[in-house]
Structure formats: structure tokens, C-alpha cells
Design a protein around this nucleic acid. Structure first.
Length: 91
DNA sequence: CGTATGACGTGCA
DNA sequence: GTGCACGCCATAC
């Protein structure tokens, strides 16, 4: 564990976690919030991804807790296409 | 410091 | 099964 005591921006934590999501693995905003240390901040998680248009962040692997797609800076269709390509089952 | 916003989640009609 | 409203947290102004 790398010194998580340092108080960094919540977004940095979320972005880091999302950027570490393995291929074919999808996490819900809530899961990301939990991993970020704030299980009830799933609202903020979506906000951060939305404001952070970084292609280095596989935000397309982050979906709703019920399996629905959220949104994507490149287009919802693109997100679905990528997930399907990764081998993610779409309900 | 207080208000408003948002790529959510859950519950209820 | 679908749609609407409320509640939660963090950030921006």
C-alpha cells in the first residue's frame, strides 16, 4: 500500500483506480467510490470522470451498479462498442 | 461560506 | 418493466 495517508484530491484517487481497471473488467461508480475510500461518493465519482476528459482513463469500463451504461466523452455508442470488444457481457 | 450542479443509487407508483 | 423523485458526496463559482 502506498502511503494513502497523504490527503490528495478525491479525483486523483478515482482517476487512479479507474486507470487501473483491467481489460474486460467493469466497475460501477459505487465500486470506484468504495475503492476510493468514500462508498457514498459515487456522485462525485461521476462528476470527476465527466470533468476529466482523459483518454488515459478507461472510463468506458465504469458503468452503473445495475449494469447500465453511464455516459462517455467519446459517445455512448463508442463505449458500448469498446466494452463488447473487451468481452464484457451487456445485459 | 453558501448555493448550484452532476457520466449515480435506491425506492416507490 | 418503466419512469419519477429524493438523497448522497465532491467540486466549482
Amino acid at each position: 500500500m502506498e502511503t494513502r495517508h497523504t490527503k490528495i484530491g478525491f479525483e486523483s484517487r478515482v482517476l487512479k483506480i479507474v486507470s487501473q481497471i483491467p481489460e474486460g473488467q467493469t466497475l460501477s461508480y459505487k465500486d470506484v467510490a468504495v475503492l476510493a475510500g468514500s462508498p457514498h461518493a459515487y456522485r462525485a465519482v461521476g462528476n470527476i470522470l465527466n470533468k476529466n476528459y482523459d483518454l488515459a482513463i478507461p472510463c468506458h469500463r465504469v458503468i452503473h451498479s445495475d449494469g447500465s451504461f453511464g455516459g462517455y466523452n467519446r459517445g455512448e455508442k463508442q463505449k458500448i462498442k469498446i466494452l463488447k470488444k473487451e468481452g464484457v457481457e451487456i445485459t
